[in-house]
Amino acid sequence: MKRSAGDLIFDVINYSLMIILAVVTLYPFLHVLAVSLNDSIDTIRGGITIFPREFTLANYKEILSSPNIAWATFISIARTVIGTITGIIATSMVAYVISRQDFFARRFVSGLFVVTMYISGGMIPSYMLMRSLHLINTFWVYIFPGLISAFNVIVLRSYIDGLPIDLQESAKLDGANDFIIYARIIMPLCTPVIATLCLFIAVGHWNSWFDTYLYNPFNEKLTTLQFELQKMLTNAQAQMTSSQDIYGFAHSEQAKRISPDSLRMAMTIVATLPILVVYPFVQKYFMQGLILGAVKS
């Protein structure tokens, strides 16, 4: 079939737009990577694109040799691992219980969770709650408040609803109790969706910084990587604006020397790296999970 001229023009424009989108999406990451691998004094000259001009690993060495950052990395990993494990156990138990049509409090329990998707007490009442529960200045403030997301419960429950019910019934006839049915029969069948939810929960934990900012800002033992990056960013902005205020633009180059751009960029890469590395491999699970959620809602 011969294509018309209009078709051809449309294709050219369309493909160009898509290439532009891909470039605009990827360029900032490549640029930041280049700056992070560039000598920090040389970076001040500007003009770096996606290749480092004076290659060095010094920025990474400096960041990773700081005990504070090493500890923040440990806390970030710890909250991601512990938060994901506890989160998925809690989510799956609730999802299984409310998937059971015969459970006497099914409507009550599921209603209790669904309502939380629409209303929340807000920042100050939550802050007060953490204070009265003595969770402020503890590691557990990263784990408990966000333990279960009602949305994840619903995604998992609708997946369980789609499983054949006879499996459960025959297990029951064999004398299995409800916990055994949940752990030995339902969970193994849910592996794909459980994997997806784990990834979502893990990414959420790795990326979160505001709970550290709000609840543990001055506790160096509980700092996280994202929070350390946030502090560097705030410092950089403060320097940018103070130099702007007092000396004008001419001095902002000097201000940069105090907190070299390259260091912040190296930190940005460190805070993103796990996601960049894992993303290509798990991308299809993310998709799968989103489609499950989309179908449900």
Binding site: H31, Q226, L229, M267
Partner: peptide, 15 residues
Amino acid sequence: HFVSWVVVASLVTEM
């Protein structure tokens, strides 16, 4: 979508 807002803010500030 999978990158934190802190990282995005850092990228935007740099760009």
